[in-house]
Every structure is written in structure tokens, then in C-alpha cells.
Design a protein around this nucleic acid. Structure first.
Length: 263
DNA sequence: ATGGTCGGCACCCGA
């Protein structure tokens, strides 16, 4: 079985690229982030004609996630237990908890995750990000004993090797000790980075300043497997060609898809 | 310290 994750930066804008990706790599299960589409806006025809089902949640802003599967899509769950929302102010209710969707596909429990960006280390969104990480870790303890995988845009560079130049991130999120600790806490619970042994390369390049052409990227998209799922991994790769502005039609997403094979 | 480029219920704001 072949699973993949991709921060697509608008599913409607890039539906042709999604379909081409599924075809090109014969992907069985694809997790998407930043779909920027409500359920009533999903482009379904080309997916259904290829034999895929889709489950999605979110708004048309940044927090949309989805799972596309041709090996079954069961027990769909929007949001994980205890997932915090973000309240813009005391009077407003927390925003909809739509940055995580889970499903069982081909016997594997998969979560498509978009970890909150955090904006700036002194921003309330940064505190929210750390709370979100802690709540996810707690919820994930219930899944680590089964064949499970946590995939998506984690919005963190775990080590300095995962940033093209860490000195440019002095007052930025993604590299702070607290974010890195929040990410590495998953390893303490048994979660395994399934991609790094096969491809430790960047997965994101900013649209500005020809960052892709100069290979000045970040590694922030991960597939963390439970021990029993990690034992099945036979290979993995980052599809850099999908990020190449010189290939394909129209602007690419700023993230590359990440693919993992299970034996 | 800026600015550069994307996307969307858009002419700004968040990534």
C-alpha cells in the first residue's frame, strides 16, 4: 500500500495536479492539507471516476484537511479527542476544529493534520500551537499500539538540518526549542519518522525569492508511524518535481508531496 | 529591516 501527504494550498486550484499525482505514483491513500474548500466545494468527479472516496473537513481559509482513498474510508472522525480551538477573543467561540481528520483506510488508521502555524513566537497563536501539539500527543497515545500514521504539515523544523539557514529564523516560529520539544515528544511515545531514513530532504520552499530554484527549503511535512506501521515501511520519497515551477501547468503548491510505501 | 508570491466569499490578510 502506498500512502502520501501533501499540503496542496487549495484543492480546487490544483485538482488537476492532485489527479495527476494519484495517477503518476499510483497512490492508495492521500492526505491533504490547506484544501481551502468547504465540503460543498469539493471537486469530486475526477476522483470518483478513478475509484477514490474523499472525506474532508474545514473552511475555505487555511485549516482544511482531507483524506482521499481507494482502499476504503471508514470511521471518519473530524478533529481528535481534546483538540483545542482558537478563540479570536473572549466573546467569540473557538474556531471550528477542522485541522485534523482521521479515517481507517486499508486497515491503517491515518490522521491528516495541519498543525497551527503559530505566526510569531510572541503571538497568542504560538501558545495555541503548543497546546495543539500537547493535545495531539495525548490523543495519539490511544493509537500508537495499532497500525497508525500521523501525517501532514507539522509546521516545525526538528533540527537545524531541516532549515536552509537557521540564522534567518532568529525571531521566527518553526525552530524554537519549545516547538522542537513538542515534536520530539512523539518519538518518546514510540512514533517513528518513516521518511527520514529514505529521504531527509526539504518538503517546503517559500514562494518568494526563488527559494526552490536555490534549494532553500524546510523539512516540515512528516509521516510519523506507530511501531507496527513503521515496521512495514519499505521506502519513501519527497516528490520534488511536483514543487518545480518549471514543470506542470500553473503555480505549484509551496509544499512537495511525501510518499511512503508499506509492504 | 524589507520584500518577494501565492490563494481566497479578496481590493486585505495569512501563508
Amino acid at each position: 500500500m502506498r500512502i502520501a501527504t501533501w499540503n496542496v494550498n487549495s484543492l480546487r486550484t490544483r485538482i488537476d495536479r492532485v489527479e495527476a499525482l494519484l495517477d503518476r505514483h499510483e497512490i492508495d491513500v492521500l492526505a491533504l492539507q490547506e484544501t481551502k474548500a468547504r465540503e460543498d466545494q469539493l471537486p469530486l468527479m475526477g476522483l470518483q471516476s478513478r475509484g477514490y472516496e474523499i472525506a474532508a473537513a474545514g473552511t475555505n481559509q487555511w485549516n482544511g484537511v482531507a483524506i482521499i482513498s481507494r482502499v476504503g474510508l471508514e470511521d471518519v472522525e473530524v478533529g481528535f479527542p481534546g483538540q483545542p480551538g482558537y478563540a479570536k477573543d473572549a466573546a467569540d467561540p473557538a474556531e471550528p476544529e477542522s485541522r485534523a481528520i482521521g479515517a481507517t483506510c486499508g486497515g491503517v488508521r491515518l490522521w491528516s493534520l495541519y498543525v497551527p502555524n503559530g505566526r510569531k513566537p510572541d503571538d497568542p497563536h504560538y501558545v495555541y500551537k503548543l497546546e495543539w501539539y500537547a493535545a495531539l500527543r495525548e490523543a495519539a497515545r490511544a493509537w500508537v499500539g495499532a497500525e497508525s500514521v500521523l501525517v501532514g504539515d507539522w509546521n516545525v523544523c526538528p533540527t537545524d538540518d531541516d532549515v536552509f539557514d537557521v540564522t534567518q529564523f532568529k525571531n521566527s516560529t518553526h525552530v524554537t526549542p519549545a516547538e522542537r520539544a513538542a515534536f520530539f515528544a512523539f518519538a518518546e511515545d514510540g512514533w517513528v519518522d518513516t521518511v527520514k531514513p529514505y529521504d531527509p530532504g526539504y518538503t517546503y520552499w517559500d514562494y518568494y525569492r526563488q527559494r526552490f530554484e536555490r534549494n532553500r527549503g524546510l523539512r516540515i511535512d512528516f509521516l510519523l508511524g506507530s511501531p507496527s506501521l513503521a515496521a512495514r515501511v519499505t521506502g519513501a520519497f519527497v516528490d520534488r518535481d511536483e514543487r518545480d515551477p518549471a514543470q506542470g501547468t500553473g503555480a505549484p503548491s509551496d509544499h512537495a508531496p511525501v510518499v511512503v510505501d508499506l509492504g
